[in-house]
Design a protein around this nucleic acid. Structure first.
Length: 571
RNA sequence: GCCCUCGUAGCUCAGGGGAUAGAGCACCGGUUUCCUAAACCGGGUGUCGCAGGUUCGAAUCCUGCCGAGGGCGCCA
């Protein structure tokens, strides 16, 4: 339920197309409260916090205020009676057609068509950016996501994190934040050693050497493929080199990184920067971070290890930074990395993590706080697991066994538009089931095509109108007031919703809301298409509808852009 | 055992203090001399996991329980 509360959401909720209607209503209600108080009709209710919201059922108007309901106890009056008084003192508000008291005491506002025509003028002339925030928070926001180690291909879990992060970034940019997208990769430490040894063994095996595969090695079949690539590239010339392991690890890291970059590219997931763990070690930032923690009294030594007292900040137990063998844990460079982020001047950090990292949140927050920063500036979005099915049958995957369907394979089978749509249409908090057969269907029962078809229809209409000799006249010459059909009004209302939906989705870090809205928008457009002919004998109607199509195109393109979907001209 | 997330229609999922709880799929039927039928129209389904509590009002917030998933390393 969209609610307008001035002090929340991106600062300055001004949208390019003046979509600030609820604030006008709030001003009006506030002044009605003052007037009623001055007239002695009501006690002073100005301190009550109420909400301007969308009624669930549009039969109850376009906006509703619950002031009477929240004030009933204070005023010692029946809610409906309060609402009546407020309504009597309400000043006229431009574009408001009617105000009525309804239900238990809601004040329901119904907008005049003139409002929607204002919105249409903006949408049709500005384009997809008509609902973009005029001025955002101004915050420099860094979003870190995917961040898979370069030890193998990306899988469907990475895909969800990647799509979620990417759509969230697009949303934040759309609502005015200065966004930087970063991929952090752990190219140091024990996991990389394991990977190097595994790939080295596979290389030697490929070269015909009889070597055993390490017991703790990476079992995936892809290592055999990559070893074959390496053999093809350098022959067996590396076999007897003394620095074989180092060479293989370097090559293998590059190989894995290339695979990830190619896959992300196919998925239209873009990054501004790639940050390697090695960097924080080389720059001495790990030592610096631990030093800072120690200075502030959050570090102690025990059993030969260096500990971070995270329990001070609510963690379940203290955590090791430097193991007794002298090597850092995963946490140490990660603390240094986050310190580095703050040093780079970001106001807000958002990390997209998989559900398996949930337990890591308290210690990371502890690190931020212990280093002297506001832990609320670090937000963690957790994406729940993805169950891959094919025709309802669970596709068995063993991450530990190394047998899994890769992100790239899913893209190649299903197509990136459908993959992105299905992965971003569900709340990150919900464990989702991704069915390959269902997503692959190129038919009307696939919601992604339903949405894209709205765009294809717009293009088709444009072509047909042109062929029919119908040329769109300037906006100023069009009489938009002829748009009165219920289907036309319904479409206008959906175009109007785009701005608030984007704000809400960005503010709540809820990228899936875009897909939900997109379906409503597409429904309204297809309904309009079915009920109202654009190319008609009445030139005034034809002109107005051409502009309505143009406005709808702006909204549809905005949604497709936010979801990172292609906008096909024909299907 | 402790912590986190989830539990809403047959299935996949929205809604997360507000009015009569929604969509898609699946199922049945209808619409095309008419801008793409990948569309439109009609047909029905709910103990919102269970039980308490807070509130003018609870699917939504709190507590407990049940169930599913994830996490509880000097792994990453």
């Amino acid at each position: 339920m969209y609610q307008w509360v001035p002090e929340r959401g991106p600062a300055g909720c001004m949208i390019r197309s003046l979509l600030m209607f609820p604030s006008a209503l709030r001003t009006a209600v506030d002044s009605a409260l003052s007037a009623a108080f001055a007239a002695g009709d009501l006690p002073d209710l100005s301190g009550n916090s109420y909400v301007i919201e969308r009624p669930r059922d549009r039969d109850n108007g376009d906006w509703a205020a619950n002031i009477a309901l929240v004030s009933a106890r204070d005023a010692k009056m029946a809610p409906r009676a309060i609402a009546e008084v407020v309504a009597q003192h309400l000043p006229t508000v431009e574009h408001v057609a009617s105000v009525e008291v309804a239900g238990p005491g809601f004040l329901n506002f119904t907008l005049a068509p003139s409002w929607y025509l204002e919105v249409l003028r903006s949408a049709a002339t500005v384009g997809p950016d008509f609902a973009r925030a005029e001025s955002g928070s101004g915050d420099k926001v860094q979003v870190e996501f995917v961040s898979s180690n370069p030890t193998g291909p990306l899988h469907i879990g990475h895909a969800r994190g990647g799509v979620t992060g990417d759509v969230l970034c697009r949303l934040l940019e759309f609502s005015g934040d200065d966004v930087s997208r970063e991929y952090y990769y752990n190219d140091a430490g024990a996991q990389m050693d394991r990977y190097g040894h595994s790939l080295t063994a596979r290389y030697l095996q490929a070269a015909g050497r009889d070597v055993a595969f390490p017991e703790d090695g990476y079992p995936g079949h892809y290592l055999i493929d990559w070893a074959a690539d390496l053999l093809e590239e350098v022959g067996d010339s590396w076999v007897d080199e003394p620095d074989l392991a180092a060479r293989v690890l370097t090559w293998g890291t590059a190989r894995a990184m290339r695979d990830m970059e190619e896959t992300l590219d196919l998925a239209r997931i873009r990054f501004d920067s790639w940050f390697s763990e090695t960097t924080v070690h080389e720059r001495g930032e790990v030592a610096e971070a631990i030093g800072m923690l120690r200075e502030r009294g959050h570090v102690f030594d025990e059993d030969g290890a260096v500990w971070f007292r995270t329990t001070t900040f609510g963690d379940e137990k203290d955590r090791v930074l430097i193991k007794s063998d002298g090597n850092p844990t995963y946490l140490a460079p990660d603390v240094a990395y986050h310190l580095d982020k703050f040093h780079r001047g970001f106001d807000r950090l958002i990390n997209i993590w998989g559900a398996d990292h949930h337990g890591y949140i308290p210690r990371m927050k502890a690190a931020v706080e212990a280093l002297g920063f506001d832990p609320d500036c670090l937000e963690i979005v957790i994406t729940q697991t993805v169950n891959l099915t094919r025709g309802g049958e669970l596709v068995r995957m063993t991450m530990r066994g190394g047998e899994f369907v890769t992100f790239r394979e899913v893209i190649e089978e299903v197509g990136i538009d459908a993959v992105r749509y299905y992965l971003s249409a569900v709340s990150p908090d919900t464990a989702l089931t991704f069915d390959l057969e269902e997503a692959k269907r190129q038919s009307m029962d696939n919601p992604v095509y339903y949405l894209q078809y709205a765009h294809a229809r717009v293009k088709s209409l444009e072509g047909f109108a042109t062929d029919a000799g119908l040329v769109r006249a300037p906006m100023d010459d069009a009489d938009l007031t002829v748009l009165t059909d219920p289907a036309e009004i319904g479409l206008l209302k959906q175009i109007d919703r785009l701005g608030e939906e984007v704000m809400e989705a960005a503010y709540r870090r809820a990228p899936h809301r875009v897909a939900t809205y997109g379906q409503d928008l597409a429904v309204a457009f297809h309904k309009f298409y079915a009920d109202c002919k654009v190319v008609t004998d009445d030139p005034a109607v034809a002109q107005a509808r051409l502009w309505l199509v143009e406005g709808a195109k702006s909204a549809v393109l905005a949604v497709l852009g936010l979801l990172g979907l292609s906008a096909p001209d024909r299907m």
